[in-house]
């Protein structure tokens, strides 16, 4: 489905580092023009168009307001495959932490409640790691906006893959209190 480009549709420059306020302003302004409520007394064809347009507007806003989805959108448009994460993007320094986490999960499964402490530690380690990755990604966003270099996009893709991996670990470490 060749749906129109989200940036073009919203009428904003194709940047990765977007000002959320500016994006929101565009969204509200376009909503006031395109929403089906404004076409309730118009012809069926106009109503159908309003439905399509406002669905596109909402999809575009939903995608671009979220930095991760926004980056994935641009990567995809630039021909990058964002489907499966590649294991080579898994940071080697993470292996020990992953091992610790798996051990703690195993201990917990065996009924050792003391393992919860390790899970807490693992979780905050991964959360910090993700914050670091987010900061790095932000910097790369600005770099791409300034340079338009394809190589920066592949670095961003690698960062996103690592982020995905770390996010999975955070979820894994987030064991509910009930056993």
């Amino acid at each position: 489905m060749s749906s129109p480009d989200f940036y073009q549709f919203l009428g904003i420059p194709r940047r990765l580092a977007l000002d959320p306020k500016e994006l929101e302003t565009r969204f509200y302004a376009l909503s006031r023009k395109l929403h089906p409520d404004l076409f309730a007394r118009k012809s069926a064809a106009e109503q159908a168009k309003a439905l399509d347009d406002s669905a596109l507007l909402n999809d575009a806003f939903r995608t671009l307001r979220d930095p991760i989805k926004r980056a994935e959108y641009v990567l995809k448009a630039e021909g990058f495959d964002i489907g499966e994460q590649s294991t080579k993007d898994v940071p080697a320094e993470l292996l020990e932490e992953v091992f610790e986490l798996n051990m703690a999960l195993e201990e917990l499964r065996m009924g050792d409640d003391d393992a919860r402490e390790q899970l807490q530690i693992s979780r905050s380690t991964f959360l910090n790691m993700r914050d670091g990755l987010d900061a790095e990604t932000q910097a790369k966003f600005a770099e791409w906006d300034a340079s338009d270099e394809k190589s920066v996009l592949s670095e961003i893709r690698a960062l996103l893959n690592r982020r995905k991996y770390v996010t999975n670990l955070i979820e894994k470490a987030n064991v509910p209190d009930r056993v």
Binding site: M1, A55, L56, N58, F61, R62
Partner: peptide, 11 residues
């Protein structure tokens, strides 16, 4: 919690 109208495509 997606704003409606909302759409999505899948191949």
């Amino acid at each position: 919690n997606s704003t409606i109208p909302a759409s999505a495509g899948e191949t």
